[in-house]
Design a binder for these strands. Structure first.
Lengths: 195, 195
DNA sequence: GAGAGAGCCTAATGCATGTAGGCAGAAACC
DNA sequence: GGTTTCTGCCTACATGCATTAGGCTCTCTC
């Protein structure tokens, strides 16, 4: 059996699969080597070290998520677009728990400045712009929306809601509605020029 | 020099100090042993294993946070209480980054059912009750508020806002205001009895 | 067909968790 | 008071991980 040659891309992809399948904590150089059928030392010919590998998963996931979000907000606006964007995040987190976990760790400068990261911010801005916020408020609103979506998914994943698991979908609806209302009333509370 | 005898409590406390001082990831059995001046193996006489140690920090932090929140909401209500509670979280996360990190990991059943955990939920409910939400909505609102506060702090700590670090305090104000508005308008969007 | 380079290997180091069993001092019991 | 027992820390060891150094072997090139 001839082996496909290794490459950074293939290794990052395999690591991402590993993360989704066995949990993010299971992503080790040793496990990855087992997965692709080589010895651990061989990994280092293609990837700098474990940190770089995890960063690779982070960036890969950001890119996939950005595409997913793009599809979810295309042709929509206002509450519709907001709900679509939020749902895209939740879908992705549910379908790719390991990749999602990789995105939760602090992003190094390389990842933070990557096209994927830029895209996600850009899409969020596109969604929020429909609410007509003045430009300087957009950055605050983006942070607020991002915090709520990520925070909700983090709590959900951490099992903080498990006592009443049957209600999480409804809670999610409520959270999205609450975000929508907060954005709609944003300018009432902070009219242009008010600090 | 006579040594203070070790104990689970003292070890968890020392581990929490270590976490705040050197980062949560620096909390290892070996490092803790160095800190308290014994050999690593001796730790296991007092703590089951590393996981139990980290859980101990988690629970300790929950208790401290609960007390902190209690002080911040005493005698206040409405937006005031909400802001106080949120600020208490932010203060604590800023002052005790390691302990805060310990709280971000999934809580085992022991921690989830602990008095400290119960207290925090109770306090949050107390704050939200002032907004006059119908009982079944309280659980959704609690999740929403918790998600936003924790999510904001997570993003802030991860450095996601660093590009414009000068604005984070203002963003925080905006987020608290947005929470307040979302809670005030909650029943308009979901009047009693509506699913 | 010789040389060069790519790609994977073996071997070794250092540090982590965790276990088993020993030893010494203090406390309890006769 | 002396013996026993128990507690608390120790040494020694097994295992697993990340990472580096250096070697071996194909394959591609000239």
């Amino acid at each position: 059996m001839k082996r496909e040659p290794l490459s950074r891309t293939r290794l990052v992809g395999a690591a991402a699969e590993l993360a989704d399948h066995d949990g993010f904590a299971a992503v080790t150089v040793t496990a990855l080597a087992r997965q692709v059928g080589v010895k651990p030392a061989s990994i280092y010919s293609h990837v700098e070290d474990l940190a770089a590998l995890l960063e690779g998963i982070h960036e890969l996931a950001l890119g996939e998520l950005a595409d997913h979000v793009a599809g979810a907000i295309a042709g929509r606006s206002g509450r519709d677009a907001l709900a679509g964007m939020a749902q895209a995040h939740r879908d992705y987190a549910g379908r790719h728990p390991g990749r999602w976990a990789a995105m939760q760790r602090p992003a190094g400068p390389a990842v933070a400045g990557s096209p994927a990261a830029r895209k996600i911010v850009e899409y969020t801005w596109a969604v929020l712009r429909a609410y007509g916020l003045p430009e300087p408020e957009l950055v605050h609103a983006t942070r607020f929306v991002g915090a709520t979506i990520n925070g909700y998914l983090a709590l959900e994943k951490a099992g903080s809601f498990e006592h009443r698991a049957e209600h999480t979908d409804l809670s999610w609806q409520r959270a999205v509605n609450a975000l929508d209302r907060a954005l709609q009333t944003w300018t009432e509370a902070h009219p242009e020029g008010t600090a």
